[in-house]
Design a protein around this nucleic acid. Structure first.
Lengths: 202, 202
DNA sequence: TGAGGTATTAACCAAATGGTTAAACGCTTC
DNA sequence: GAAGCGTTTAACCATTTGGTTAATACCTCA
């Protein structure tokens, strides 16, 4: 059924946009209806409540974010190439959904317990073990400096994600506009890769 | 007047707590009144509206955050000692106000324009120039590797701040509790310092 | 064509929420 | 002790907001 799918999809798209920008409590059902160009009652016709609609958007977002974090941690090539490639594609993929990280962080903080169940069952849960074992192997071989793998992983994600979370702040502090920021992000791929690899030199 | 000051202060403290945890739209005036242990009408007696009360809390928070970011960027010692000392104290000071960064990021994203005016007039606006010149001087001397100073600064802040923004996520992903997280933060001071300095080796 | 189901809407409702008001309380001062 | 003042409260108000309902438009299929 075309019409049904279309309307359902329009609602999800609108809900994603509004929830991402305003958060759960800041989002109004009327805003979502307007954004989707439909009547407010339709939201309740397809998705029973604001909570249900939010869950739909939120789960999708978590899934997306986790699969991206997974990509960073999953490694089966040479460390150097892997880090380089993975950081680049990670930054690129967030650039396509710049509001995703802040949205997730924020909503998780609102209600930390809600997320935990979700995580255990998520298929794309990051494979941390594999990446840590790879790091340990390289450290044993002496090809990279010995560091705490967890601290390292979090640092990599931090350097990739933070610019998007802090975008308006950074634009103000460094007095740059949107084009310059986009260029900054593009350059950041190479910077983070080389920064991390430099830090790992024995 | 003791009572006045006390009540006023109670309100501010309560408002800070509620706004920080729930954000502007998620916070209820009744919540703040309850937290302060007073009648809701008192909030309007001392501060005219929710917006006014929020501004009070928000400005204070911005001031606090900026002065801390400033501390990172202000440098007048040897680079190595400076970086080490500053990262440590920066992480410590955020640890005392772990909700501050996410709160600021989030509210700025809600209404980016509001912050810009605020920034220009803030006395504790970070002295970026000084730090950048210092970095450039060291690069010219060849004591550190040549990197983009802006990318570097943002990376340092990212590594310090991100763990607090992502705390519930990290706790879930790495399956750690509050004590382990506190230890992680404590260890992070040394890690980030040594990571940055290692990355800057020529 | 029209019966039957689905999609859509306008109007409505109850609860929550920011904000107001008028009365009461308590303290100081004469 | 009561006049005068700032403080505090309970009750109230108007608007917003999530959610419902009953009627209507639309679409398919016999």
């Amino acid at each position: 059924m075309q019409t049904t799918n279309s309307t359902e999809q329009q609602i999800i798209d609108a809900a994603r946009k509004i929830f991402m920008h305003k958060g759960f409590s800041g989002a109004r059902m009327q805003d979502i209806a307007d954004e989707a160009g439909i009547n407010k009652a339709m939201l309740h016709y397809y998705y029973r409540s604001k909570d249900k609609l939010f869950d739909m958007v939120f789960n999708e977002a978590v899934e997306k974010l986790l699969s991206r974090v997974s990509a960073v941690f999953t490694a089966d090539l040479l460390l150097e190439d892997k880090i380089q490639g993975v950081i680049g594609s990670y930054i690129s993929s967030i650039a396509e959904n710049p509001y995703l990280p802040l949205f997730i962080m924020n909503e998780i903080n609102q209600d930390p317990d809600r997320i935990i169940d979700r995580f255990v069952n998520t298929p794309s849960f990051p494979n941390i073990q594999e990446f840590m074992m790879m790091l340990n192997a390289e450290m044993d071989k002496g090809t990279i400096r010995r560091v705490d793998p967890v601290q390292l992983m979090i640092s990599i994600v931090a350097m990739c994600v933070f610019p998007f979370i802090a975008k308006p702040l950074l634009k103000a502090v460094f007095k740059i506009g949107d084009p310059a920021f986009a260029q900054f992000i593009e350059e950041r791929k190479a910077f983070v890769s080389s920064f991390v690899l430099s830090a790992l030199r024995p």
